[in-house]
């Protein structure tokens, strides 16, 4: 089997995978990083969003081997060094931006990517950026509020 190595949340990791192994399968399986979720099989729900080389991507629609040598960041890497919630995570808790928590890792990773590109997004820009992330619990109201709050906190 081919081997793959990458940096995940600052840690060098490697493993043997098949050609067909998806990045999300590598993260959830051998690496045990089960914070990244799978909610669909058509690349639409966004529960699996992680950052690869600083870009938000759907880890269910990327082969593990495509991430060979890459810097990967997952929800497990979003906390502060002391383990407390990072700014975006904290904004979600403060604004009740999650309920069942299943879409949440993808939402946080997508929100963080948006705020890196656009530190002061409008409500419409936030909603548009969430096009690839489905939530069934919140009606999106508090997710948008959370991202607005995170943007304000980061500015």
């Amino acid at each position: 089997m081919p081997s793959v190595s990458m940096t995940v949340n600052g840690r060098q990791v490697s493993g043997e995978v098949e050609g067909r192994t998806l990045l999300v399968e590598f993260l959830r399986g051998p690496l045990g990083l089960t914070g990244t979720h799978v909610g669909c099989d058509t690349s639409q729900c966004g529960a699996c969003v992680v950052h690869v080389n600083g870009q938000d991507v759907k880890s269910c629609t990327m082969l593990a081997l495509e991430a060979d040598g890459a810097e990967v960041r997952t929800i497990e890497g979003m906390a502060n060094p002391d383990g407390s919630l990072g700014v975006v995570q904290q904004a979600f808790q403060d604004n009740h931006g999650l309920q069942c928590g299943y879409c949440t890792p993808g939402m946080v990773m997508t929100a963080a990517a948006l705020l890196e590109k656009n530190p002061d997004p409008s409500e419409a820009e936030i909603r548009a950026y969430l096009e690839g992330n489905l939530c069934r619990c919140t009606g999106y109201h508090n997710i948008v509020k959370s991202i607005q709050a995170a943007a304000a906190a980061l500015r």
Binding site: R28, L33, T34, G35, T36, H37, V38, T74, I75, E76, M78, A79, L85, Q89, F92, Q93, D94, H96, L98, G101, Y102, T104, P105, V108
Partner: peptide
Amino acid sequence: SKRREDVRFLSGSGKYTDD
């Protein structure tokens, strides 16, 4: 009151059945 369960959901340490 803020939700205490959020801390595990937001840090990727929730434990869902598939986990």
